[in-house]
Design a binder for these strands. Sequence first.
DNA 1: AATGAATGAGACTTCATTCAT
DNA 2: CATGAATGAAGTCTCATTCAT
Lengths: 225, 225, 225, 225
Amino acid sequence: MKPTLASQAATRTEEDTDHRTRVGRERRERTQARIIEAALRVFAEKGPDAPIIDDFIKAAGVARGTFYNYYQSTEELLEATAKWLQDDLIVSIEAEIGSLDDPVERLSSGIQLWLRKARTDAAWCAFSVRVRRHGGLVEQQLGAALKAGREAGVLTFTGADAARDLVVGALREAMFRMTEGRVSATYPRDITRLILIGLGLDARSADEVLGRPLPRLRRAARTIA
Amino acid sequence: MKPTLASQAATRTEEDTDHRTRVGRERRERTQARIIEAALRVFAEKGPDAPIIDDFIKAAGVARGTFYNYYQSTEELLEATAKWLQDDLIVSIEAEIGSLDDPVERLSSGIQLWLRKARTDAAWCAFSVRVRRHGGLVEQQLGAALKAGREAGVLTFTGADAARDLVVGALREAMFRMTEGRVSATYPRDITRLILIGLGLDARSADEVLGRPLPRLRRAARTIA
Amino acid sequence: MKPTLASQAATRTEEDTDHRTRVGRERRERTQARIIEAALRVFAEKGPDAPIIDDFIKAAGVARGTFYNYYQSTEELLEATAKWLQDDLIVSIEAEIGSLDDPVERLSSGIQLWLRKARTDAAWCAFSVRVRRHGGLVEQQLGAALKAGREAGVLTFTGADAARDLVVGALREAMFRMTEGRVSATYPRDITRLILIGLGLDARSADEVLGRPLPRLRRAARTIA
Amino acid sequence: MKPTLASQAATRTEEDTDHRTRVGRERRERTQARIIEAALRVFAEKGPDAPIIDDFIKAAGVARGTFYNYYQSTEELLEATAKWLQDDLIVSIEAEIGSLDDPVERLSSGIQLWLRKARTDAAWCAFSVRVRRHGGLVEQQLGAALKAGREAGVLTFTGADAARDLVVGALREAMFRMTEGRVSATYPRDITRLILIGLGLDARSADEVLGRPLPRLRRAARTIA
DNA sequence: AATGAATGAGACTTCATTCAT
DNA sequence: CATGAATGAAGTCTCATTCAT
């Protein structure tokens, strides 16, 4: 049946609405991406605290008001950017350790790769340590790793919250130390060992797993620059 | 020997000088005390970041210029206040655990008393977690405790820096968690246990030492209010 | 006469045009109604000055651009809303006093009903006092009442403009006073009496007419909420 | 007795304190005067709503922060300036009518002189009508005049608030009319007559008092320019 | 007509710092 | 050493308006 004028009109209107909605959403996504990309550059250049909103809008080439349509403050943007970066690192790490069977090796490797990133990318480290909240993937992968280790019987900690805080706290403090100057060659290994043992791994196993070779990140994690 | 006129004169001058010096110093100390007392109140009320210099000078009842004679920024005052508070807590803790022979019990008790303070004094906790640098006594006592434990052979960690970072990092993260809401009843014990085990204490000893009664602070540590 | 093809075509076109015109007009009216209904709620909640265009479009559920198809500014909408409300009150008042023969009683009752509305509907009062221009009906009915009173010989004022300003000014000031707090029980009567006497009514007649019972508004005037 | 060093020091300190206090207060007063004077010029040039804070600080030659030490917004400054101007006019009017014995003549003359100012100084009129609150002297003198008239038995209104509102409301509405265009030659007299009669003066007396010659303001009231 | 993302002029406001007294 | 008025750079943020779809 040929559509009537009325039905055509209706159809066109619906199509129009859909189209507008889709176009609008795409534009939003593109703009948000521009802002985050620009923020990476700005934070890399000026550090996490110095930038002002003007820096971001100039770098992103958007209007002042546009910025406020997405973020209410530099702090909010800082957090969003940090989460984005951290999640990106997690993706890179997962690409390497995803195939490992041993949950402890997965955890150990993840921690060490995280610390290696921190040690070799000072800007990333200073940036990440500045923000309290993590990306969703960080919490998610860490939680899964701890659970797997405990279920496998190799980690014996009590209190999932406390275990998570031990890992995150020690790593954050380690990262903070790295922002203050170079650490000794054995420091990352020491930290990792303390954490693993704290989680209940026996010392012999800890040393064994730490002795295994650590993969390189083939997919280079995004950095702030 | 009888003083000569000359020496008398000299003495008098010295006395005058001393007098002026002493009066001046006392005035300085009184003013500084007023500022820090006021700062405690202000930080307690407004948190660590919100206060502006105006808040301090109004609370202390001093003039704007006077403030600058003592501190160059709110950050400087914040750090001074935090160190002062933390060291004051360490003194209170030391008063309780100073007589203990067992280095592990000293460490365990110290950590738990610190966490108890954090849990029961939200303002103090929020305030302390905000500041990165610790009071001198904190680092000093913690370092001593770790060293004693290792020398006694009950702690087996490698890397003094890493060990310190494990303790401090876990505690800081724990304090941060406490600022976000109440923690479970077992949480402080969990954290302490993880730390002790992470430092190389065997699990049996850890549980044993955690089973011992924890003293109360008889000398109530100063709080921010 | 049988319509020719041409005339049929013409007719159909006209019908179509009519149809489209009618549909369009209805849509316009519906949208405009939505906006003004929303404006009533917004002004009631936020007062006459605070609202911004965003408030109206959110409350009305229309797009930003749509708003501009109807009003060029919040001020324009404010005035439109106020006139609409005031005229609505006049309609309600007219329904009660329209049948009265005595022009002075009509005037007296109108003033008192207006003041009663102001006293019992704080939002309406604050809103009306904020806007300088009145609805057309207000000026029209007031003018007619003054003219009737003068022609009947009971009002003896000189200068129609001045008389109108006395009434409107006193009422506006009264309304302003009401926005500041409660007024005494006799205040509305006092104001009305002063106005009537100012317009040249003798005191005895004024007191007599003020002694007559004041009708209730059976048709409740629209309010801003 | 010769003052000791100590007592001298004490004295000097007290003198210093007094001196500082006095100097400070004087400086404040001078600055505030500068701002108000500048505001008069700015409002005269741009009207009551257009000016922005920048206009005032440039005209006054003070820093942005200094402005905020005295007024929180242009609106606040507008009100302060209007009150100042109105009180200044009251002073000028008082100088003319202060010696009159007849309270009704005082009131009548005051109203007419006020209206004359409004009619002959459009800027002043637009400016005064824009602000709701009056200077203290306005309320004070008006209140006194009404009370005197009533006590003398020539004014017979009931309700002091209502009487005040009749006068102020009618005058404000009259001023508003003047901002919209020229008024008829008899308009000010009409308004005054309506008010006097509204307050209970008998018509004959009203016409008699309105027939008396109106003084000129010898002390020209300050205008906004 | 309706949509709503983007715009950016045009303000506002704070607050660390100075300095004459 | 204490005072506090004045400073003004450095930021913040709003919101009316446009315009491509």
